[in-house]
Amino acid sequence: MNFDLHLNGLRAVVTGGTLGLGAAVVKTLAEAGARVATSARTVPTQPVEGVTYVAADLSTAEGTSHLARSILQDWGGVDILINVLGGSKTPGGGFAAISDAHWFAELDLNLMPAVRLDRALLPTMLAQGSGVIIHVSSIQRVLPIPESTTAYAAAKGALTTYSKSLAREVTPKGVRVLSVAPGWIETEASVAFVERMAADAGTNYEGGKRIVMDWLGGIPVGRPAKTQEVADLIAFLASPRSASITGAEYRIDGGTVPTL
Rank of each mutant, 00 (worst) to 15 (best):
V212I: 12
I234S: 10
A151W: 08
G218W: 05
T227L: 10
V132R: 09
R210M: 14
E195D: 15
Y152I: 08
A238D: 07
L237S: 05
E195V: 00
I134D: 11
V212K: 04
S163Q: 10
P240S: 01
L178G: 06
L143M: 09
A189T: 12
R223I: 01
K209C: 11
E188P: 00
E188W: 04
A238R: 06
G174V: 02
T203I: 06
K226I: 01
I139G: 03
P172I: 00
I245E: 09
A198T: 03
W215I: 13
S239V: 01
R141L: 11
G129Y: 02
S242I: 00
A199G: 08
S190R: 12
I234K: 08
A154H: 12
D253R: 04
A154I: 00
E188R: 03
A198D: 08
T171D: 09
D118E: 15
L126A: 00
E186I: 01
V230Y: 12
E188T: 03
S148W: 12
V194I: 14
V136F: 13
E249A: 08
T124Q: 11
K164Y: 09
G217W: 06
V170W: 08
A192N: 10
S165K: 09
Q228K: 15
A201D: 04
V170T: 07
A114K: 01
I133W: 09
I133M: 10
W215V: 15
I219L: 01
A248G: 10
Q228D: 14
L159I: 10
T150G: 06
G247I: 02
A153C: 08
S190Y: 05
A225G: 08
A238W: 06
W215T: 14
S130H: 14
T149K: 05
V212T: 04
T171Q: 11
G174Y: 09
S190Q: 15
S163R: 09
M112Y: 14
A181W: 09
G202W: 02
V191E: 15
I139E: 12
A127Y: 03
G218F: 08
T246N: 14
F193L: 13
F236I: 03
P220C: 02
T203A: 02
A198C: 00
Q128A: 08
S148E: 12
T160N: 15
L109K: 05
T150E: 13
L166Q: 10
I139Q: 11
